[in-house]
Design a protein around this nucleic acid. Sequence first.
DNA 1: TACTGTGAACCTATTCACAGCA
DNA 2: TGCTGTGAATAGGTTCACAGTA
Lengths: 218, 218
Amino acid sequence: MIDTSLKRNYTGENQAAALPEPSRRRLVRLMQILRQTKAERLTSAEIGGLVGCRDTLVRRDIGLAGFRGGVSNGYDTGALLSAVERALGAGDGAAIRRCCIVGLGRLGTALLDSSIFDGSGFAVVAGFDSSVNRTEILRSTFPLYPASRLEAAVAAERIEFAILSVPDREAQSVTERLSRCGIRGIVNFTAAAFAAPEGVRVENVSPVTALLTLAAGC
Amino acid sequence: MIDTSLKRNYTGENQAAALPEPSRRRLVRLMQILRQTKAERLTSAEIGGLVGCRDTLVRRDIGLAGFRGGVSNGYDTGALLSAVERALGAGDGAAIRRCCIVGLGRLGTALLDSSIFDGSGFAVVAGFDSSVNRTEILRSTFPLYPASRLEAAVAAERIEFAILSVPDREAQSVTERLSRCGIRGIVNFTAAAFAAPEGVRVENVSPVTALLTLAAGC
DNA sequence: TACTGTGAACCTATTCACAGCA
DNA sequence: TGCTGTGAATAGGTTCACAGTA
């Protein structure tokens, strides 16, 4: 059995782990809105329209994030953004988080375009594929490795997150390998469902999964 | 106040709308597992390991889906799959659902590889981009149109769902156009947050959003 | 024995209702 | 007046505990 007691070593004053999951998701969304908006002030009702929830809930979330600065014409977007980023551990001072892409098929290579991640707080610093052909031919601003070097490179590059775009059948085994070298989260672009190892979070974002989820409600 | 009583006009025997949202998401996941597994039987505990929830909850979900066939060595995967598909409106008899890709940048073109959607119950039948250059040069098994023909083609092709991979700044306006021609759901690959028009569901699956959500919990 | 199915208890998230404030 | 912030009420989802069954 895997010992979980040592999995989390808190490296900062990040309180996000204490936030309820739904609030965390909405606050992430709010952070993205605030990063993009040009408005100087926003009310909870306006935010609710963009996040997709009621104004009351927006105010709750903001309260949970530890921000109190609202006045009768809404929130100052700059101040609110700082507070939300701090609550989510994505503040100005926060280190850029290092990611890798595993599986350089059509979808994986599309993500080599690192401009996608500009200003997000994340940087892709490595790519992996089982085909040496691909890792040698493809061009990118960061190194591409054969899959055999996954463990070594993840450790050496101190990579925290992985974007998984391998064929479905490899998803489970690659996940286990990633987990063993201490990855903290996986963005799963495959349609495969796999057991998330202890201490590894998974976000399922396969287009197929997303379409199924959408369609299931209609 | 908005009157919700008339919002849903049930167009079939699809009961998925009645399922609680979290259950629906887990059942979608379960459906994917069942479609992929080779096992003839699975217990609720095994399923729970893959879906990421407790066995009790799996049994609740299965019950909500209207299936009762479990016995002391678990569920027959074939029978369970039929039941889950029926509950989600994705049964054998269900029509293939028609989708389009809007925005044929690197990410959008990666999704032109229609093998991604094989066997999923979805088919991409059109692509759109504001650059006529792209729509004329790119190769695909289905037609690619200039963005100006969005409304016409979505109506003519009876497209129900859209995959959005345009630049962030265009996300809101394209969403409104899609909504006006009756699209039912949008898979949002952009990092933009936009107000979902009445009657349109949105699944946010941008890699950036996914990474932020993962990282916010650590 | 090893599982499922489910009423009841519990806990969590959301909404209501309204006081407080600019 | 028009907003925020929050205690209290409500609704909703999850887990417990256990009876039922092959």
